[in-house]
Design a protein around this nucleic acid. Structure first.
Lengths: 177, 177
DNA sequence: TATTGTTATACTCTATAACTATA
DNA sequence: TATAGTTATAGAGTATAACAATA
């Protein structure tokens, strides 16, 4: 991402396509008339939850990746390990459905976690089509560390949007988890 | 995405009927022990804003794409057309920075919008390296329709999370837009 | 027949690097 | 030297389809 995700001062949304302050910019004028990003209005975009959510999600994932860069764990890998850790024995289908991940994609995610000796696939005795997923001993130790770093990331979020706002957000979006 | 982002209502029927409240599960049990998604705990994930935000963003983008499918416009295309419409003459760099899009990616986005005669690139007279971006006449008419459909999508969001919650969300995340 | 895990393909998006034409 | 637009590549992530083993 090139853009700055920080506070750009909510420029007023204009319904028509006119420059903010009578500063004239002819229709065919050259590009680059805006010295500051703040001058560029978002228009209807400012009222769309999806736009704000997308920008926020990019920021939050980047902070997560940065905060856990020393252990090389990305958000999806963390989510997979966390549900397996909390629900040992789950099948790949169950994990995929619970987290909204394509089962085809989970195959590759698990391949990489298994190669790092964090997760193991155990052939199910009752249904030989499926695998029971477990953390390895190493995986359990590692996950504990990942959780500490993830909690640190979560503190960054609270600093960024405010403690109360973070809790309100979790409450509003609880139905989607 | 296969997963339903709504409150999963556990449609899955399974031969192996387990008591809903029984929770003892041995560490080496086979896969597929969970009859209902609701039984699969998220553990630490439940406290992570990023997880909820990601699930919500997937839902909201899918609703946007579905609601605007008749006009074949995706969220990023809509955002690009909206800022160009509100700020005619902007350079590609300015649009890219404002929306947090890689300038390399904006090239392809604009190629496709230009091929559909919605946007035009005009050589800047003052800086011949850059292009001044404008909506075409057709683009302006089309954008008005896109905005009506986007407003319909926004009503879906309000229905889903509640009117007040949607406004609270916009307020909390305003700093990221 | 249906499901689980797997492989494969295609398209979107993100992140870089390098090239060109200008400045 | 630096910047705007472009081209190219690589890696995630999403969306499908199809296949083998098993139910």
């Amino acid at each position: 991402m090139t853009g700055n995700a920080q506070l750009s001062k909510a420029t007023k949304s204009r319904t028509d396509a006119r420059p903010p302050r009578g500063r004239k910019r002819s229709a065919n004028s050259g590009a680059g008339q805006h010295a500051l990003d703040d001058e560029i209005g978002l228009d209807a975009l400012a009222g769309h939850a999806g736009y704000a959510v997308r920008r926020f999600q990019i920021w939050i994932f980047q902070d997560f990746i940065r905060t856990l860069s020393a252990v090389d764990i990305r958000p999806t890998q963390y989510s997979v390990m966390t549900v397996i850790g909390a629900n040992p024995g789950l099948s790949q289908m169950a994990v995929a459905k619970r987290l909204g991940i394509e089962r085809a994609r989970l195959v590759h995610l698990l391949d990489s976690l298994e190669q790092r000796d964090l997760v193991s696939r155990i052939k199910s005795a009752t249904d030989r089509r499926s695998h029971a997923l477990h953390l390895t001993a190493r995986g359990r130790t590692a996950l504990a560390q990942f959780k500490r770093l993830a909690a640190e990331h979560e503190r960054h979020v609270a600093e960024k949007i405010g403690k109360g706002n973070r809790e309100k957000l979790l409450q509003i979006l609880a139905a989607f988890t």
